[in-house]
């Protein structure tokens, strides 16, 4: 069976252990996690997790079923029609061409967000694929550090 990439949203009770239950499930059953993000859903006692994973169709089906089986899981959505976004922070030496960096970031819904004595921090927020391109493009400005947020997604 062919391996596919899937974005899965899991809505869980925001309680102790819940992240461990989810990540432990992936570790224990040998499922792959590419990215995992989690944050509370405003004005509820729930959290939203977005997981990017890979596997064949049977594995993906098992992942969604096993996630659902966890007692604190309210909802599991295997995304098909979705908006996907990821954010990245990149730190550059102050000596680099700041205007070029600014322009590059702007093309990816970002900009320079902090300027320090020796470095600047820039941000971009875009589709995961475009974030990859952005990171490649930053290479020529000698990035010191790159931090990606992982993917969040919403069904259209």
């Amino acid at each position: 069976m062919e391996t596919v990439r899937r974005v899965i949203s899991v809505v869980v009770l925001n309680e102790a252990q819940v992240l461990a239950r989810v990540s432990g499930l992936f570790a224990g059953r040998g499922y792959n996690i590419e990215t995992l993000t989690v944050a509370p859903i405003p004005e509820t006692d729930l959290s939203h997790m977005t997981i990017v994973t890979r596997g064949n169709q049977r594995v993906i089906e098992q992942i969604t079923k096993q996630l659902h089986k966890l007692i604190p899981t309210l909802k599991v959505i295997e995304h098909s029609e979705m908006v996907e976004k990821e954010m990245v922070l990149v730190k550059f030496p102050i000596e680099e061409k700041l205007s070029d960096i600014q322009t590059l970031c702007a093309a990816y819904n970002g900009g320079i967000v902090n300027v320090g004595e020796n470095m600047v921090i820039a941000m971009a927020a875009d589709e995961p694929m475009r974030i990859k391109h952005f990171i490649t493009a930053t290479k020529r400005y000698n990035p010191i550090e790159i931090v990606r947020s992982g993917v969040v997604a919403m069904e259209r």
Binding site: A16, Q17, A20, R21, G24, G28, I71
Partner: peptide, 16 residues
């Protein structure tokens, strides 16, 4: 205990 037993219980609780 909850960490160790997570994978071998249907559910577990640590009472806080």
């Amino acid at each position: 205990a909850v960490g160790i037993s997570r994978a071998c219980t249907k559910h577990n609780y640590l009472v806080h």
